[in-house]
Simulated scan of single mutants.
Amino acid sequence: MANHISNFFYFFVILTTIAAVQYSTVDAGKCTSIFNRCDDIDCPGHCKSAHGTHGVSWKCDLFYLCTCTFNQNPSSKNLCRIGMGTCYQGECDQSCCNAKCAATYKQGFGTCIPNQFTKDRCVCSYRS
Rank of each mutant, 00 (worst) to 15 (best):
C38Y: 00
I5Y: 04
P114Y: 06
P74T: 08
A20V: 09
Q72Y: 04
Q22C: 08
Q116G: 06
E91R: 09
N7G: 14
E91V: 12
N7R: 15
F8T: 15
M84R: 06
C80F: 02
A99Q: 09
L62K: 07
V13L: 14
C60L: 07
G85L: 04
T32G: 03
Y105P: 01
S57H: 11
L65T: 01
K30E: 03
C92I: 03
D61S: 09
Q89Y: 14
C38L: 07
K77N: 12
C87V: 01
T111N: 12
T118S: 00
R121E: 03
S75F: 10
A20M: 15
N36L: 11
T118K: 00
S95P: 02
Q22K: 15
T16W: 14
G52I: 09
C112Q: 01
S6R: 10
F63P: 00
G83N: 10
G90H: 07
R81Y: 07
T86W: 01
F35N: 06
H46M: 10
P114Q: 13
G29S: 03
K77C: 07
G85C: 05
V21R: 12
G90I: 04
I41A: 08
N71V: 09
A2Q: 11
C31T: 06
M84V: 02
S6N: 05
G90K: 05
I34C: 04
F109C: 02
A20G: 06
D27H: 15
A2L: 08
F117I: 03
I18C: 10
C96S: 03
R37S: 11
D93T: 11
T69H: 09
D27C: 11
V123S: 01
C124P: 01
I82V: 15
H4T: 14
